[in-house]
């Protein structure tokens, strides 16, 4: 079975037609437990998330701040396996028909076998992968495998990325480009860094791929601001933190549903109403 790269592209195109940014939400698989995590992701998907990222927890999450580190730690101590990550992706896709991405550091996939992982993720209905420590120069073999399984390879771009590298990674990437709003690890910040919009502009100058912005986006006001210039808004730590702070899993899922709904509302652009039938 082939992966859902086309579904991902279609979802982003439809959001654009509807004059809104897509909402992309994240949860670490196996957090707080595998089944509770699946329920939380389903709550996200029924509350307005367009796309979900399922995190494959890692012992050494170099690009993650304390919130996602804590979630990864809980998931790993709970004994989560890659099969559980695949099952989480499968259930999320089956229940919603929406695109599901896996976010993973490279070593677990490399060790598991890129071919085996890709074919299992594609069979589960997955749409692609975000691999934050696999830069474009090291990615040729992976992209070949992912491409054969119709899985997107979503590269991150950072404010420090040179224009020359932006050309390389946008040429190699598929699905969308993940623009980091700031220089830093995942986590909750007070305001959206001004670097975000200029990075999105620089990316748009070299590619037609949609550009989604994440890292440091945690509330509706920030989501609305980012929706003004990006094709998608990615929220992770704020949702994970809601679960960490909740008294139990059900309360966590309810808070996540509320926050997702608020974020979803915020991604609609009010300044320039959609013209039916016209795409921009």
């Amino acid at each position: 079975m082939s992966g859902n790269l086309q579904l991902l592209a279609g979802t982003l195109a439809r959001a654009k037609q509807e004059n809104r940014a897509a909402l992309i939400t994240y949860l670490t698989a196996g957090f707080p437990t595998v089944n509770e995590g699946i329920a939380v992701i389903q709550a996200m998907l029924t509350s307005g998330a367009d796309i979900v990222e399922v995190g494959l927890p890692h012992s050494d999450p170099l690009l993650d701040g304390p919130v996602i580190q804590a979630a990864d730690d809980i998931a790993l101590r709970g004994g989560v396996r890659i099969a559980d990550v695949i099952r989480t992706a499968a259930e999320a896709y089956q229940a919603s028909g929406k695109p599901v991405l896996v976010m993973s550091y490279w070593n677990p996939i490399d060790r598991y076998g890129a071919e085996r992982f890709s074919s299992e993720l594609a069979a589960a209905g997955g749409a692609g992968c975000i691999l934050p420590d696999l830069p474009v120069q090291e990615s040729a073999r992976w992209r070949d495998i992912a491409g054969r399984h119709s899985l997107a390879t979503i590269f991150l771009a950072a404010p420090s990325t040179t224009d020359e590298r932006l050309r390389e990674l946008t040429a190699a990437g598929s699905g969308f480009i993940y623009a980091s709003s700031l220089m830093g690890v995942t986590g909750i910040r007070e305001s959206v860094d001004t670097a975000a919009s200029s990075l999105v502009q620089r990316i748009r100058a070299v590619t037609q791929l949609p550009v989604c912005v994440g890292i440091g986006i945690s509330n509706a006001a920030q989501a609305a601001q980012v929706a003004g210039f990006a094709d998608g808004v990615i929220v992770a730590s704020a949702l994970v933190k809601a679960i960490l702070d909740a008294p139990d899993a059900a309360a966590g899922a309810a808070t996540v549903a509320e926050l997702t709904a608020e974020l979803s509302l915020a991604t609609r652009r009010h300044d320039s109403p959609a013209k039916p039938g016209l795409t921009r």
Binding site: P135, Q137, E138, A157, T162, R165, L169
Partner: peptide, 20 residues
Amino acid sequence: GDGYFGAFGGKFIPEALVAA
């Protein structure tokens, strides 16, 4: 040139660090 000693080495880092 890519930092490999045989099969080992390379540069597996977040994009944000590549420039540095």
